[in-house]
Design a protein around this nucleic acid. Sequence first.
DNA 1: ACCGGAGGTCAACGCCTGTTGGCATAGAGT
DNA 2: ACTCTATGCCAACAGGCGTTGACCTCCGGT
Lengths: 184, 184
Amino acid sequence: MTARRSDATRAAILTAARQRFAADGYERATIRAIAADARIDPSMVMRYYGSKEGLFAAAAEFDLRLPDLTDQPTDQLGEVLVRHFLDRWEGDGTLIALLRTAATNQGAADRMRAVFTDQLGAAVAAVVPDPAQAPRRAGLVASQMLGLALTRYVLRLPPVVDTPPADLVTWLAPTVHRYLRAPT
Amino acid sequence: MTARRSDATRAAILTAARQRFAADGYERATIRAIAADARIDPSMVMRYYGSKEGLFAAAAEFDLRLPDLTDQPTDQLGEVLVRHFLDRWEGDGTLIALLRTAATNQGAADRMRAVFTDQLGAAVAAVVPDPAQAPRRAGLVASQMLGLALTRYVLRLPPVVDTPPADLVTWLAPTVHRYLRAPT
DNA sequence: ACCGGAGGTCAACGCCTGTTGGCATAGAGT
DNA sequence: ACTCTATGCCAACAGGCGTTGACCTCCGGT
C-alpha cells in the first residue's frame, strides 16, 4: 500500500487524459496524443489502464460534491445550487470532458445519467415538498444546469459566455428555485 | 434545371446521413455505413458531396422555423416557444445530429452557434422590453431549450424522458417567459 | 555478487477510415 | 447505329488508430 514510484506517471497520464478528453472528446483524443502530453510511451497507457475505455473510465471518475441542501435557507436553494455548479465547472474540466464525450459514447452517457440521477436526485429529494415529484424536479434542474454547461463551455454561445457568473446566478437561481419548490 | 434521375440517390444519401449522424455523431458515423444504408457505393457519396465534411454540411442544413412571436399574446410567449421546440425535435432528427456532433466538431458547433444567435436572437429581439438585453435573454432561452434537448434526447435522463411534452410545457414555459420578459 | 521484477522504450501488427481512379453500363441526342 | 455523358461499382491506396510483445535498464532484497 506504500506509494510506488510510478504513481507520478499514473497521475500524469490521468491529467493529460482529462485535458485531451475535455478539449477533443473521446474519439478525437488519441492515446498517442495523451501519451505525448504526459511525455511517456503510448504502451504505458495500456499497461496502466488496460485500454482506452479503461483510461476514460478512470479519467471520468468524478463527484458533483453537492453541499447538503438541508443546511441552506429554503429561499436560497436556487442560488446555492447555481453557484455551486458554476464553481465546479470553472475549476475542473472533468465534467466538460464527460459532457463532450457523452454525446457520442454510450458508456459516458450512462455514467453521466447515473451521476445526475443519484447525486443530484438525492440532494434534491431532501429539500422538495413532495417526495413523489423529487425525480422530476431533479430532472428539470439538471436540464437547466446542463444546458448552461453546454452553451457556455461547449457551444460557447456569445451571450452566455459573456455574462459574468454573478449575473448568471441572478438569472438562473429563480428558475432552479421554482423547479425545486413550486407547488405542482 | 429539370430533375435528374440521380436526385433520388442524392436524397437517399442525405436521409441516411442524417439518421447516422443523429444516432452516432460525426466521428462514429462512417461514410461506408451511410452508403450501405442508402444502398449505394461509398464513392457515390464522395462524388455528390465531395467529402465527409461536405456531406455533414448538407445534412446539417436546417432552420428552427420559429413562428413570428409578435403575433402571439405576450403572456403566452414562453408556452409557444417551448411547444415549438418540442414539436421541432420530436419530428426531425437533424437538430439532434447537430447537437451530438457539435460536442466534438468545430464546424458543427459554429453552425449551431450561428443558428441560435441569428434565428432565435432575431425572434427574441422582437418581443423583448429592452433591446440592449435581447442577446442575453436569447442566450438564456437557448440554454434551457438546449438543456432540454440534451437531457431528453442525448443523455435520456429518465425523469425528463418520462415527462410527457404537455407537462414539460407547463414546467418550462414560465422559465422561458421570465427570461424573455422579466425586468432586469 | 547475484537475481528478479517493475518501469520504460521500440517497432510492428491488424484494422478501419476517408478518399481516389479506373472500368462497366445504360439511355438520350443525333 | 453511334456516340457521349451521367450514373454506378470495384479495388486499392495511404494514413491513423488501438493494441501487442519483445527488449532494455535500473534498483532493492538476499
